[in-house]
Amino acid sequence: MKIKAVAGTLIGALLAFNSVSYAKQYHEMTFKAGHESLQEWLLPDTPPYPKNNKPTKERVELGKVLFFDPRIGGDGNMSCATCHNPLLGWSDALPTAKGFKSQVLGRATPVVTNTAYNSIQMWDGRKKSLEDQAVGPMEASVEMQTNFTELLNLINHTDAYKDAFEAAYPGEGISKDTIAKAIASFERTIISNNSPFDRWVKGDKKALTQQEVEGFKLFVNPDKGNCAVCHSAPNFTDDGFHNIGLPTWGDKNPDMGRYTERPLRLMKGAFKTPTLRDITLSAPYFHDGSSTTLEEVMDHYAAGGKVKTNLSPNMKQLNLTDKEKAAIVAFMKKLTTPPKKFELPLLPM
């Protein structure tokens, strides 16, 4: 009895230790449905949030309304959802975004899905939290060009809006700050965590085919796909910055990426690793929209990148057969959560 109890606590302690403190390497993983060594790939049920902005029903609902309200844009016809469109995987299906009066912007619209789990926002990491980020696009003249005086005026003259702010943030008022907090609360509900891959990790053997499991193995294996060094558990990102040698890096005046935030040689042309969850919904791919399909993405990596000046040292030419490349692509296609019913709000009038 006693021995059993001690062993129990020991195993418990060991498990706890493993799950928090360190990422499993390839040789420590057993690629069987539900295996203990794979559990770090499951996302926590609820994403983290700042102390002063615990998501409540009222906050999420207000944030949803603001996210979809086109009157926020300077011309009264652009909302967050114009670019982060739920019908297009919370992105816009464009190679790079189109901003105020349709001007073409330099970078692709990233998905909002699972950004709540990331500790740094934007392709160059210039924003830390979702609260920090939310007013950015409104203030940007090339994006929404929001007129805040007019926006606050509109909200203050719309009873339903006023009531919603008071219900969500009693006594905090209507300001850029509470607008940002509400939008961030809504974004924390845009989550993909129930893909066939997740179900397989939880133990459903039938959720992935043999080829897809093989694809996952190759994805992690450092001598094969080597993808998980950057697209790491559980959100398929390391919250890190890498130059992966995209074609546009060879342009005359290329986008310097993270370098503008951290002026270190290594960061020239480096961009944030995006999540791969729901990846089938957000083509074209990369910050410059240079790949239209996952097959093209795979070819880019197999060649070890295209423009190799200042390439990340974690990039290399890959030793993969066509069959193996197809397996990795098949695996990525199983990272998408089946669509759920999503109700659009009626906007306060």
């Binding site: 919250d239 890190g240 951290r262 270190l264």
Partner: peptide
């Protein structure tokens, strides 16, 4: 002296 890794800002 604040020391960081540029690749992994955490």
């Amino acid at each position: 002296v604040e020391v960081e890794c540029a690749i992994h800002p955490n």
